[in-house]
Nucleic acid binder design. Structure first.
Lengths: 128, 128
DNA sequence: CGCACATATGCACATAGGTTCAAATGTTTG
DNA sequence: CAAACATTTGAACCTATGTGCATATGTGCG
C-alpha cells in the first residue's frame, strides 16, 4: 500500500517530467498563505504613486499629506488613498500633529528593497 | 520678482506646509519613468502564482512548465501566462530542450528580494 | 507526413484596483 | 459655535489583469 504524503496532493492530474525535483521543490516551497502575503506586499509596492511616496519619505524622513501631494505630483485624495494601502501593509506610519498627519517609513526592509529595485531597473536599462 | 525654478512646477495649485523640505524631496526624487519601471517590477512580483513560481525556481534551479505546474498547483496554461510576465520583466530565462521549455531565474536581485519579502511577512506576523 | 506531446497564444469573462468627485471627519482659530 | 483647513472616506467609473478554454505553434517519433 502506498502511503499518501503532502507531496502527492494534486500530482495525479498533471504530467510530471522530473518527479524527484518536483517533490523537492514542493517540500521546500513556503506555505500558500505565506506566499500570498509576500505577493500582497509586492502588489502594494507595485504602483507608481506609492513607489514615489516611499521615495519621498525615504529622502526627507517625514512629510504631511499635502506636502507629499506636492512632491509626487498627485491629488491629496489620491495620496491619502495610496497611504491607506501603505499603512495597512505596515510600510508607513502616521503621526498626528494638529490638523496635519505626518507620514514616515515604518519598515526596515523598504529602503533596501527600493535600492534593489532601482538596481534592477538600471541593470535592465543598460541591457537594451 | 520671484524667479521660477524646476521645484516650483505644479506647486502653485496645492497648499504646501514645509516648502523647503518639499523642494529637497523633489530634487532627490528619481525620474518618473524610473519609478514607473520600479513599480512595474514590483507589480510583476505581486501575484501569488508568480511568487510561487519564483520560489520553485529558487529552490531547484530549473524546471519545465508542467513540473512548475505541479509544484505551484496551477494549470499549465496559467503557469505559461505567468512565466510570460516574468520573462518580459527579465526575471526569468527560458531554455528549450526538445519539446520542453526549462525556466530558471535570470535576476541576481530576486533571491535577495524574496528573502526580504519573507522577513517582512514574518516580522508582521509576529506583531499581531 | 501525421500523430502525440509540451508549450504558447488569443479571446472572453470576472474581478481588482487607481483616480476623481463629493461629502464626512477631525482640528484649529476667531 | 462657525468657518477654514487638512485629511479621510465612499461611490462611481474605467482600466488592468488573472484565469479558463479553445486553438495555434513547435518538436520528436513512427
Amino acid at each position: 500500500m502506498i502511503t499518501a504524503n503532502a507531496a502527492d496532493v494534486d500530482m495525479c492530474e498533471v504530467s510530471v517530467i522530473d518527479r524527484k525535483r518536483v517533490e523537492v521543490a514542493r517540500s521546500l516551497m513556503p506555505a500558500i498563505d505565506e506566499t500570498d502575503r509576500m505577493a500582497e506586499w509586492f502588489r502594494v509596492l507595485g504602483d507608481p504613486t506609492r513607489t514615489r511616496l516611499l521615495y519621498a519619505l525615504l529622502e526627507v524622513g517625514e512629510l504631511c499629506v499635502c506636502d507629499l501631494s506636492a512632491v509626487v505630483g498627485a491629488t491629496e485624495s489620491t495620496v491619502s488613498h495610496s497611504l491607506r494601502w501603505l499603512r495597512a501593509a505596515g510600510i508607513v506610519r502616521a503621526r498626528r500633529s494638529g490638523r496635519m498627519m505626518y507620514y514616515s517609513l515604518d519598515d526596515e526592509h523598504v529602503r533596501m528593497l527600493l535600492n534593489l529595485s532601482r538596481e534592477h531597473v538600471r541593470h535592465r536599462e543598460r541591457g537594451r
